[in-house]
Structures are given as C-alpha cells and as structure tokens.
Design a protein around this nucleic acid. Structure first.
Lengths: 128, 128
DNA sequence: ATTAATCCTTCCAGCCGCAGGAAGGTCAAG
DNA sequence: CTTGACCTTCCTGCGGCTGGAAGGATTAAT
C-alpha cells in the first residue's frame, strides 16, 4: 500500500506519515521503485499512534505505548501508570487555564467595553 | 540600564529580552559601546509584555496590546474584545482537555493496573 | 506512442517562543 | 595586568509537523 492509500486509511497527512518514519516510529518496507509500502500492520500502528496522539500523548509517549503494545509480557500497570501521569498533566493544565480564565474574566468584567479610552485591563497590564 | 539589569527588573531572561528586540516588540537605545540601553519606559513595556504573556496572550497579541496601550484614543471595547476572545480560546481548550481527561479516566478505570498483560487501554488504542 | 495528470521521492525552510552555546568585545575590581 | 562578570552577534535545536521545490514513476486517456 502506497503512502497515499495509507494516509486515506489512517486519516493522517502523508507528510505526517513520512515524518513518523523519519523519527523511527512507523517504518514501512520499500517497493522496488523506492515507494514506501505500508503493510496492514503498519497501517494498524499508524492508527494506534493517531489515536494516542489524539488523546494527548506526545510522540515519545506514543513510542513507549507502541513498545508496550508490542510487548506481550508487559504489565497492565505500566500502561495505566502512563495514562494516570497524562491525566495528571491534564489536571495541572486545567488548573492553570482555569486560573487564567478567572483573571481574564475579572479584568473583562471591570472593563466597560465602550468607546472611551479608560480601560482597567490595559491599566492592570501596565501596573500590576 | 544594561540588559542584565533589565532582566532582573522584569524577571525575564536576557535571551527573551533580546528576542523581543529582534522581533521589534521592545527596542531599546544603544550605548556608545554597542550595549543595549533600556530606559524606564522600555522596562515598563517589558513588564507589560511579561504580564500579558503570563495571561496567555501570544506575542502578536502582546504587540497589539502594546499598540492599544500606546494609543490614548483607543476604545476600551477594543481591549475588552481581545480579552473576551482570549477567554473564548481558553474555554475551547478547557472543553478539549476535559474531554481528553474523561476519556483517559474511563480507560484507566477499566484497567486493573496489575502485573498481568491484559490492558483495556492498549486494547482501545489498538482497536477503536 | 505521446501526453497529461497524479502520485511518489528527497531536501530545505518555516512555524512559536524562546534556550543553549560558541566566539569574541568591554568593563570594573583587585 | 589579570581575572571575572558582563555584553555582543551568530548559529542550532526543541515539538510536531506543514508547505513547497525539483524531479522520477505510474496511470489513464488520447
């Protein structure tokens, strides 16, 4: 299967798939003409990566997840630990964003938002 | 004021301050020896940018905020619109992260997390 | 058989917002 | 006079791609 078909099958851009090969994440065979030749297993792994990425895992985490996937002997605890760590990262990000949101909302609420120049938001930025 | 002092005064790395000059955000005068020479106003603008950045505004948004800050005639509505748009961005990101969190939590909850290989998380990634 | 369209290849550059480091000039203290 | 702190410019790299150029391969239609 050429890269274009693999792209359609995985819903990933061909550029991304080439990049995944470049970094050694999913490496297809090559046809005689030099074209990349993706097997069913390759496509499967690409989909695996695509789903892991969409869940917020980094490329390196995807690499680890793939190796855990390949390792029939791994403990489910290892995978769960990775998921829990990712949840922790998300939680920290959520707290940060909620705090930002609160600050911005407070500032925006005190701003009249009319055509006059007086603006508490700018004032706050200029003199905190 | 040399860049080191400006860095201490603004709590920004000197590297960052040089970068801000490179992109035309805060451009200091130069002393005879070629050293950057930050005025009180420059330091003030650096602090302004630092606070705007910490609130989640991009560099380009900071540039806009600075120009709004400089413009004594601007309407507070212009500033407020920018803040509200940023809040909207944060909200979209929050929704996304909360959805990711829910999915990951659901997966982690169904995983025993023991030393056995059977793992619903990996299974989900491998066959969604 | 020729052409045109589509696919594929490699390579190079750019995005954001810096950070790290090399090579060298400048300045203040002892 | 030396040491060390500070400053300068320039180049590279991070993550995770994306866009584009230049050129070879394949396929479909004429």
């Amino acid at each position: 299967m050429n890269i274009g078909s693999a792209a359609r099958a995985t819903d990933l851009p061909a550029k991304t798939i080439r990049y995944y090969e470049e970094i050694g994440l999913v490496c297809p065979a090559r046809a005689e003409n030099g074209y990349r030749d993706y097997s069913g297993s390759d496509v499967h792994r690409l989909k695996f990566v695509q789903r892991a990425r969409s869940l917020g895992f980094s490329i390196e985490e995807c690499r680890l997840l793939l190796s855990l996937y390949d390792d029939e002997q791994r403990a489910s605890a290892d995978v769960k630990a990775l998921a829990l760590e990712k949840i922790g990262q998300i939680d920290r990000k959520l707290v940060e964003l909620q705090s930002l949101r609160a600050t911005l909302t407070r500032l925006a609420d005190t701003c009249q938002g009319n055509d006059r120049p007086d603006c508490p938001i700018i004032n706050d930025l200029a003199r905190a």
